[in-house]
């Protein structure tokens, strides 16, 4: 129960403000985490929110300074930050 609560309130990429940075800690969704790992979003990697599309979704994040990745808010919510 406790664990669940903690999970609910964990900060994720979807909570980032424009220009704000975070470091990836873990993922909460199996299938999504596979895709994200292949795309280079690894635990320990720094991400920064670069742009928010009109209507607030999807967002664009910079992954480790290497490249820009666009994902939906529900996809971003899978990436927990430290």
């Amino acid at each position: 129960m406790n664990l669940n609560k903690e999970r609910m309130s964990a900060r994720t990429v979807s909570h980032l403000k424009k220009g704000e940075k975070g470091i990836i800690k873990s993922f909460t969704d199996r299938a999504m985490s596979l895709k994200l790992l292949e795309m280079g979003c690894l635990p320990g990697c720094e991400v920064r929110l670069d742009a928010i599309a009109p209507f607030g979704d999807p967002i664009c994040i910079n992954v480790g300074g290497h490249y820009s990745l666009s994902l939906r808010l529900n996809e971003a919510a899978v990436i927990e930050l430290e």
């Binding site: 490249y67 666009s70 996809e75």
Partner: peptide
């Protein structure tokens, strides 16, 4: 199946 977006810019 679920829908994905995830696109490299």
């Amino acid at each position: 199946e679920p829908s994905y977006f995830m696109l490299e810019m």
